[in-house]
């Protein structure tokens, strides 16, 4: 392929023209990816925030209370969540949601879809209830799956930092324990987690595949499965391009965060 053709292809891909789809002449890959990215971000965004918060808190507590009953309990919960097959756990959560609804006699949780269209034009409070009902269960599933491994990383990292010389020095200088942990230990201990989370978030955005299938959300994971089912190579290339971009951006954000977390790191 000559340079001219390559340029032409670049020019088409940039505005989101990814080529014809085997899913029909009216299936626009660029539009589909954009819509599904938004869907996935809605699903993943909340779960990642909760998972990260929970992982940091439990990781730090586990490290500070090493070998205590609390540490063992949190470790057990973490490994349990890590060991749960996603499709099974998602099914269990659906059944649990249904049971909960039956117990309270109301439909607090929904088990399928994002329900966005049925909320169009409804009052804001109803829209919120609708969104919450549809998002709660898949968010919990994604959150617990990510939380499990992240909390283990955070615990290990925190233990390593707590045993380092500069933390001992900080204590020797008479700083309060809370200050030592928050200002000196935690910030450094977050660096390995930042790396893991950056890659993890990119992975989840690209492919919360099983969660999306079980909860029938039309996100990027479902997009990938559909493209494979239809032998849709242009759609897969579009998905791959987005994946690569997300990984690069996530790593860039991680690199920038290193400098925020550790004052010794400077980009000059």
């Amino acid at each position: 392929m000559g340079d001219r053709n390559r340029r032409k292809r670049r020019h088409r891909t940039a505005p989101g023209e990814f080529g014809p789809s085997t899913q029909g002449p009216h299936y626009d890959i660029g539009t589909a990816i954009a819509e599904r990215l938004w869907t996935t971000l809605r699903l993943v965004g909340a779960s990642m925030v909760f998972a990260l918060g929970l992982a940091i808190i439990t990781g730090v507590i586990s490290a500070l209370r090493q070998y205590s009953k609390l540490d063992y309990t949190l470790t057990f919960v973490g490994f349990l969540a890590l060991a749960l097959p996603t499709f099974w756990f998602a099914g269990i959560m659906q059944a649990a949601g249904v049971k909960f609804n039956q117990l309270v006699g109301d439909q607090v949780f929904a088990t399928i879809g994002d329900g966005r269209f049925r909320a169009e034009g409804a009052p804001l409070w109803d829209q919120f209830l609708n969104a919450f009902a549809h998002m709660a269960l898949p968010t919990i599933v994604l959150m617990l799956i990510s939380f499990a491994s992240w909390s283990r990383y955070q615990r290990t990292s925190m233990l390593e930092v707590m045993n380092s010389d500069y933390v001992r020095l900080a204590r020797a200088k008479g700083l309060r324990n809370h200050t030592v942990i928050r200002r000196h230990a935690l910030r450094t201990a977050l660096i390995p987690l930042t790396t893991v989370v950056a890659i993890g978030v990119a992975g989840v955005i690209d492919g919360a595949i099983l969660t999306e299938v079980v909860f029938q959300w039309r996100g990027l994971g479902d997009f990938f499965i559909t493209a494979v089912d239809n032998n849709d190579s242009f759609a897969l290339m579009g998905w791959l391009l987005l994946s690569g971009t997300i990984v690069i951006l996530a790593n860039l954000v991680a690199d920038l965060l290193y400098a925020v977390l550790d004052p010794r790191i400077r980009y000059e």
Binding site: G91, Q94, G97, T111, I112, G113, F117, R118, F215, Q216
Partner: peptide
């Protein structure tokens, strides 16, 4: 409302939950 649901395994929970 007509949702498209490609996973028949989810029908039972959704039906019991009165979602469909």
């Amino acid at each position: 409302t007509m949702p498209y649901n490609t996973d028949e395994g989810t029908f039972v929970n959704a039906f019991v939950n009165s979602e469909i």
